[in-house]
Design a protein around this nucleic acid. Structure first.
Lengths: 150, 150
DNA sequence: TATGAAATGATAATGATTCTCATTTCTGGC
DNA sequence: GCCAGAAATGAGAATCATTATCATTTCATA
């Protein structure tokens, strides 16, 4: 993500939080900063490693706050551990490829036509079960480049 | 699932386990039996409730065994809790609709044409990230019928 | 600068899952 | 049927990510 955009992103987050009377503190800023550099949802352990000086309890607490404010999106990997990334209104709509070997998750975007197709299928799936759709995404499993050694 | 098929299903599971020199014991049978009645991935707590007389430690241990043998498929809900269902080679390929309110998960199947379309997109997503694809599924989020009260 | 609300950091508590180990149940050969 | 070894079980302890607690600090506003 280009330098330029990062400042705008922080501004957008700040506005979003202020609308909800939540302060955009240094700890929360550093969560967002750590998340900007990332290719796909990262574990809390990894995020903590990237953020020297921020206590684990604060990280957890702020992830909850940012999640409830819709700034961040929470996922779970194959072991059930939490992984976070910036919400789609900040990064754009995308899907995930998960490595079945090492557990890494990467973001992938599709063309507008393909997205439309998926959207239609998702609506159909929801409708068939009597659900009111609120979102969808394709989870693709595979073996990532660096795990394909044999 | 019809009565008739249930016996065949147990036979298929038995063969699968025997190939791996794993015994198909009463405890394991009752896990499979509990799973047959289910509409979508169920939590371990719910499974345990359905299986009076089976200690929790045995349930957990057998879920691991059945998962490693490919009899059962493990998922995680929005809270990161484990949910299990029978593997697709026993039930057929399908997708999931998740209620964002109560967390229930239901299975949904699509037409062959739609499946082909999704398969193509999944391959494309994997390829774009340099992954060798091993599987995929669409996760649709929505509000289930019984949570649509307002 | 004072005041009350919100956020922090250190630590304790929680709860799902996994591990341990003594006991029990299978299986295959005699 | 009976034995020996392997596998499975059950009860409980241990683990570990995540949450809650609470005294202290920081912030926004007057």
């Amino acid at each position: 993500m280009p330098e330029r955009r990062t400042a705008e992103l922080h501004e957008a987050v700040k506005r979003r939080l202020e609308e909800r009377n939540i302060r955009y503190t240094r700890g929360r800023r550093s969560v967002v900063t750590a998340l900007v550099r990332i290719e796909g949802p990262e574990s809390t352990a990894e995020l903590h490693r990237r953020m020297r000086g921020v206590p684990l309890s604060s990280l957890y607490r702020n992830l909850v706050v940012l999640d409830e404010a819709g700034v961040v999106q929470k996922h779970h990997d194959a072991d059930g551990l939490a992984r976070y990334e910036l919400a789609e209104w900040l990064t754009g709509h995308h899907h995930h490829v998960v490595c079945v070997d090492c557990g890494t998750v990467e973001d992938v975007s599709l063309s507008d036509e393909d997205e439309e197709m998926i959207g239609r299928l998702a609506r159909q799936i929801a409708e068939r079960a009597g659900y009111r759709e609120t979102g969808h995404n394709i989870e693709v499993e595979g073996v990532c480049p660096s795990c394909q050694h044999d």
